[in-house]
Amino acid sequence: MPAQDIRELRIVGFLCNWCSYGGADTAGVGRFTQPTDLRIIRVPCSGRIDPLFIVRSLLNGADGVLVSGCHPRDCHYAEGNFYARRRLELLKRFLPVTGIDARRFEYTWVSASEGQRWQHVVTEFTHRIHELGPAPSFNPMSEVDWNALALQAAQGQGCPCHG
């Protein structure tokens, strides 16, 4: 089996160190099966997550972004996720005007003991992204670009990404 399944999509997860990252770990220790499309980035706190991290990921070609932190009132730093909640909610509501499908971004709260909930969140979100399919690129290739690439491939030079 190839290391990278061609049907996999790129989902970026920003997880807080204290709850959701622990929750994902619990899910792993408990051997709960879950889709493998998610690439996890561990951050100290959901309050560390600048909404621009999410926008940057989406514009750079991520098919989905999942943010998860401690449940409100359970923040390790007392109030980080309260700020995060406001920022993330605003981003979620703002995305539609940019033409990026707001369903490609989700935020939620998972605690370190909620391995099963983590499994549920990842599975649901991955299914949703698979239903939406690969995200349209913000920098579309023109027909000229595609033709040049096809010509290059026909001449046996391969494409730039695979040599």
Partner: peptide, 10 residues
């Protein structure tokens, strides 16, 4: 629609 908005901003 999202697709129209995306095309507009592109």
């Amino acid at each position: 629609s999202d697709a129209e908005k995306l095309a507009f901003w592109q």
